[in-house]
Computed example of a mutant assay.
Amino acid sequence: MTYVVTDNCIQCRHTNCVDICPADAFHLGPNFIVINPAECVDCALCVPECPEAAISSEHELPDSERHFIALNAELAQTWPVLLQRIDPLPEHATWSQRPNKLSHLLREAEAVD
């Protein structure tokens, strides 16, 4: 089992989860972060850290969000590892808890300072 970042993260990109992750499994994209399933140690420490409730166990995902399992795995292959917390996106409050944000996902990787 692994944990998966889902729709609620898109356009918000809080990174509270990164500080608690013992496996450095998070990867940074322009407006989303993902968990590398090959690195996730299934500890669940990240779940309560996310203010958007965007992280779930792959086994608890509803059918409508199961595509995020493959999406996390795919994007983790090209996005850089995120090792420390960064600020959420400037407009995160505007996007918080909006449904169906997948069409707003940006795939081009962002450099990490």
Score class of each variant (00 low, 15 high):
1 M>S: 13
1 M>P: 15
2 T>H: 14
2 T>Y: 03
3 Y>Q: 08
5 V>G: 04
5 V>H: 02
6 T>I: 15
7 D>V: 09
7 D>G: 08
7 D>M: 07
8 N>T: 13
8 N>W: 13
9 C>A: 07
11 Q>R: 14
12 C>Q: 10
12 C>P: 03
12 C>M: 11
14 H>D: 07
14 H>T: 08
14 H>F: 15
16 N>C: 09
17 C>L: 05
18 V>W: 03
18 V>M: 11
20 I>K: 10
20 I>Q: 08
23 A>D: 06
24 D>A: 13
26 F>K: 01
27 H>E: 00
27 H>K: 13
27 H>P: 00
27 H>Y: 11
28 L>K: 15
28 L>D: 04
29 G>A: 05
29 G>H: 05
29 G>Y: 01
30 P>Y: 04
33 I>P: 02
34 V>R: 00
34 V>F: 00
35 I>C: 05
36 N>Q: 03
36 N>D: 15
37 P>Y: 07
37 P>Q: 10
38 A>E: 15
38 A>N: 14
41 V>N: 05
41 V>I: 15
42 D>E: 15
43 C>Q: 05
44 A>D: 15
45 L>F: 12
45 L>T: 02
45 L>V: 03
45 L>I: 00
46 C>H: 00
47 V>Q: 03
48 P>L: 12
50 C>T: 04
52 E>H: 01
52 E>Y: 03
53 A>L: 13
54 A>I: 12
55 I>H: 03
55 I>K: 06
56 S>L: 15
56 S>N: 12
60 E>H: 14
60 E>C: 09
61 L>H: 06
63 D>S: 13
64 S>L: 07
65 E>W: 00
65 E>C: 07
66 R>V: 09
67 H>A: 11
67 H>P: 01
68 F>S: 01
69 I>A: 04
70 A>M: 04
71 L>E: 04
71 L>Y: 01
73 A>V: 06
76 A>G: 01
77 Q>P: 01
78 T>H: 09
78 T>P: 08
78 T>N: 10
79 W>D: 03
79 W>C: 00
80 P>S: 09
80 P>W: 06
80 P>M: 07
80 P>G: 04
80 P>Q: 06
81 V>Y: 05
82 L>E: 06
84 Q>D: 11
84 Q>W: 09
84 Q>E: 15
85 R>A: 09
85 R>C: 09
87 D>H: 06
88 P>K: 07
89 L>Y: 01
90 P>S: 06
91 E>S: 12
92 H>C: 14
92 H>E: 10
93 A>D: 10
94 T>K: 14
94 T>F: 14
94 T>G: 09
95 W>K: 05
95 W>G: 04
96 S>K: 14
98 R>T: 11
98 R>D: 05
99 P>E: 12
99 P>N: 07
100 N>G: 12
103 S>K: 13
104 H>N: 14
107 R>M: 13
108 E>A: 11
108 E>N: 07
109 A>D: 06
110 E>N: 07
110 E>L: 15
113 D>L: 10
113 D>N: 12
